[in-house]
Simulated scan of single mutants.
Amino acid sequence: MSAREVAVLGVGMHPWGKWGRPFVEYGVHAARAALADAGVAWTDVDLVVGGETVRNGYGGYVAGATFAQALGWNGARVATSYAACATGAQALDTARARILAGLSEVALVVGADTTPKGFLAPNAGERWDDPDWLRFRLLGMTNPAYFALYARRRMDLFGATSEDFAQVKVKNARHGLANPYARYRKEVSVADVLGSAVVSDPLHLLDICATSDGAAAVLVTSTEYAARHGLADAVRIAGISTVTPTFPNTVLDMPNLSTDSSLATREPERTFKASIGHAAYEEAGVSPADVDVAEVYDLSTALELDWIEDLALCGPGEAEKLLRAGETTLGGRIPVNPSGGLACFGEAVPAQALAQVCELTWQLRGQAEGRQVEGARVGITANQGLFGHGSSVVLTR
């Protein structure tokens, strides 16, 4: 293990669904599962990092302390992170940084959410300096409409079709059948997807992920702690990227609402999303060619195709070719979302980046029963928050 790595000793989840119970209940369930998986006592944990949930009151805003109290005061330090859909990875990065600095040895990272029905909207009240609020209230630009812009862009740039997008859902639904934590465990066909209601053209209802309740937890330690406990061969976090755009290349790789029509067809030298993956590869000392399995941010089916290219798992405009050839499914060259992805889970915002780390840990251990990527040694995740932040985590074995 290198001096910049930390060990993943335990992972745990609470099944995704619409349970309607307090988010803390889900988080405690996942945390205890991670501790049991690691064989580590709660009293050994010296840092708890919570993923903030903005829809669950004051306890959600101080999630680190909320989970520490619910698990039983043990004197651990606490921290709370928020980065929209990149929250879990940012929380994990906080834990990793303190371990690498020698300020912590055993850290528990927990994300959990209880969500309302429908798409995720900004909290109530008028906030004229909040671009998220403005795009919803003044422009009607809800998240499904935002996803549709990405999808239409793929069609215009690369000739993607609605059938391609539907095939992503078909693949992920098949993967999710074997995942006991997935909310949706049912096969669908291309006809099912195309026959579902149009939400925001060209995307149908089954192209877009749901909002869900759920939780995930990851127990990370110093490599020295892992070695002392006979776990020197544990899965390792080799790199985490939480980069922001770099001037002058600050176009968030989609048309957005700019009056510059050339942005719809121009490929920047390296887009912001591509920079997220590049930074993770660089830190981990691996290349896209080393990756055996990927868990990416499929808020919509079209976005999965974008991320395959952003992570340099293929060239621009080639993701559809991989999909059509079966290369992104189990048994293919680079399986993507063997967990079933958000297509099968839905969004539980503080938990989803951690859920990806859980899945890759099981994959690299060879424990992903029914959905195992054979011989997986290197995995990568990807998430994007809003307005210039995202995350990618590289795990190795």
Results as ranks from 00 to 15, higher is better:
A234T: 01
V286Q: 03
V28C: 01
V11P: 05
A68H: 11
L354T: 03
L194P: 06
T211D: 14
D233H: 12
V110P: 03
E224H: 03
A280I: 01
V193S: 08
L354S: 08
G27E: 00
A68W: 10
V11R: 02
A238S: 15
P22N: 14
A280H: 00
G332P: 04
T43E: 15
V199C: 13
E359Y: 06
A166D: 08
A173G: 05
R174N: 08
G379S: 07
A124V: 14
L252Q: 06
P350D: 03
I99W: 04
E187C: 05
G159R: 11
T115K: 05
A36P: 00
T53Y: 02
Q363A: 05
Y297V: 01
V49A: 05
A101I: 09
N179Y: 01
L364V: 10
S200H: 10
P22I: 01
E269K: 13
A227Q: 02
D93Y: 11
L395Q: 06
D260H: 07
A41P: 06
L177T: 12
G390I: 05
D132W: 03
Y58F: 15
S261I: 04
E282P: 09
L231W: 00
L231H: 13
L103F: 10
Y146Q: 11
N56C: 12
L100E: 04
R266I: 12
S162F: 00
L219I: 07
S339M: 07
L360I: 10
R77H: 03
H229E: 06
E295Q: 06
Q69P: 03
G57L: 07
W73Q: 04
A227R: 13
H278F: 11
S196T: 08
N74C: 04
C314W: 03
V198I: 15
L71W: 07
S81K: 09
L395H: 01
A343C: 15
V110Y: 00
H229F: 02
A210I: 05
P245M: 13
S196Y: 09
T381W: 02
F158D: 02
G385E: 11
Q384V: 08
A33Q: 07
L203H: 10
D213Q: 03
D46Q: 13
S392C: 11
T244C: 11
R32C: 02
L120G: 09
F147C: 07
A264S: 14
Q372R: 15
T114A: 15
R152S: 10
A30S: 12
P288H: 14
A227C: 02
Q363Y: 08
V40A: 01
